[in-house]
Design a protein around this nucleic acid. Structure first.
Lengths: 191, 191
DNA sequence: ACCGTGAGAGAACGACGATTCCCGAGATGA
DNA sequence: TCATCTCGGGAATCGTCGTTCTCTCACGGT
C-alpha cells in the first residue's frame, strides 16, 4: 500500500471520528481500526496524534471552503452568491452526520490548551470571513456588511449544532437579505 | 467548614478551571488544590466529576442570564434593552479571562459523548433565545426578529472567542439596529 | 483521660490512552 | 536454501486520571 493511500485512509478515518465524537474521545486505536492501517504504519505517516489532528483540521479547512465556493460561485449575481452561502449552510445542516462546525468544536475542546488548534481555527474563520468579504465587495456593498453576514453564518452554525435544527440557516438568510437591502439603501445602490 | 461553603468553593474553583482550560483538561486534583477542599469532602459533596460538571454548567447558566437581564432591563425602552444586550456582550468579551461561551465550548468538547451536557447547553441557549424573544415582543416586533438577533449574538460570541477581539459585539449591535429598524418598517411601527 | 467520629493528606487502585517494542510470517535477493 | 528485511498484530510501557482506601490525628461527649 502506497504512502499516499495510507495517508488518505488515515485522514478519512480521523476526520470521520474526530468530527463526530470529538478529538479527545477518539483514541489512536480507533483510527487504526477504522482505517485498517497498522499502528506502525500510522505512526510512520503521522508521528503523533497532535500532528494527525493538525492534518485533519488543515484538510477539512481546505475542503470546506472549496465546497462552499463551488456552490456559491455557481450563482449569477454577487447578491445571489451571498444568499447562496446560507443555502449551502442549510444543506450542510441537514446532512445526517452534521455536528456543528468542526473548528468551533475543536476550539472549544482544545483551544485553551493547544495554540496550534487555536491558530488553525482562527485562520479558518478568517478565510471564511474573507470569502464573504470578497462577495460583498463584488456586490459593491460596504465592508462592514461582510462582518455582519459572517456573524449570522457563525451564529447559524452553533445554533444549528446545539438545537439540532437546520432552521437557523433560513433565519440567517432572511436576516442577510434584510441587511443586504439596507446596505444598498445606505449607499444608494439598486436593491 | 459548612456544606454550603464547601459547595461554593468547589464550584468557584471548578468554574474558573473548567471555563478557562476546558473540562477534560482539568483533573479533580486541580479542583482540590484550587478550592483547598480535601478530595474526601469534594467527593462527599459532588459524587462524581460528571455531577460536578453538571452543577458547574447549571450554576453558570443561571448566573449568566441573571447578569445579562440585570444589565439590559435597566434600560428604558424595549428597543434600548435589545441593543443593551450587545453592549453587555461587548463588556463580557473585554473581560481579561473571556474565552468564549462556556456552553458552546462544553458542547464542542462533550456534546457528542454526553447527552447531559448537550441538553444543558441546549436549554441554556433556549433560555437566552427566550429572553431575547421577550424583549422583541415588548418592542412589538415580529417573533422572527428574535431568531435573527439571537443568531447575531451567538455568532458574536464564537467570533470574539476565536478571533480574540471584542469587535464582533459592535458589529452585531450595528446589524441588530438595522434589523430592528427594518422589522419596524415592515410592521408599520415607528422607528 | 478515653472512645468514637469524622477530617485531611496522600497513597493506592483500576482503567485508559499514546507510543514503543517484540515476535513471527512472508517476501526478496544471492 | 538461507540471510535479511519489512510488516502486521498486538503486547508492553509509561503516564494520567477518576475514584477509593488507609493512616493518622484532632475533637466532643462522658
Amino acid at each position: 500500500m502506497e504512502r499516499e493511500e495510507v495517508e488518505q485512509r488515515v485522514l478519512d478515518a480521523a476526520e470521520e471520528l474526530f468530527y463526530s465524537q470529538g478529538i479527545h474521545a477518539v483514541g489512536m486505536d480507533a483510527i487504526r481500526s477504522a482505517s485498517a492501517v497498522s499502528l506502525k504504519r500510522l505512526y510512520q505517516t503521522f508521528p503523533s496524534k497532535d500532528g494527525l489532528v493538525e492534518a485533519y483540521l488543515r484538510r477539512r479547512d481546505a475542503r470546506w471552503l472549496r465546497e462552499l465556493a463551488l456552490y456559491a460561485d455557481a450563482h449569477d449575481s454577487p447578491a445571489q452568491r451571498i444568499l447562496a452561502v446560507f443555502d449551502w449552510l442549510f444543506r450542510w445542516f441537514n446532512e445526517p452526520d452534521f455536528r456543528g462546525c468542526g473548528f468551533i468544536n475543536s476550539f472549544g475542546e482544545l483551544g485553551a490548551t493547544s495554540q496550534t488548534v487555536a491558530d488553525i481555527a482562527k485562520a479558518h474563520k478568517q478565510s471564511f470571513r474573507q470569502y464573504i468579504a470578497d462577495l460583498v465587495a463584488a456586490a459593491e456593498a460596504p465592508t462592514w456588511l461582510a462582518d455582519q453576514l459572517f456573524l449570522l453564518a457563525e451564529g447559524a452554525m452553533t445554533t444549528a449544532a446545539i438545537s439540532g435544527s437546520a432552521e437557523p440557516a433560513r433565519q440567517a438568510k432572511d436576516a442577510a437579505r434584510t441587511l443586504l437591502r439596507a446596505a444598498h439603501a445606505d449607499t444608494g445602490s439598486p436593491a
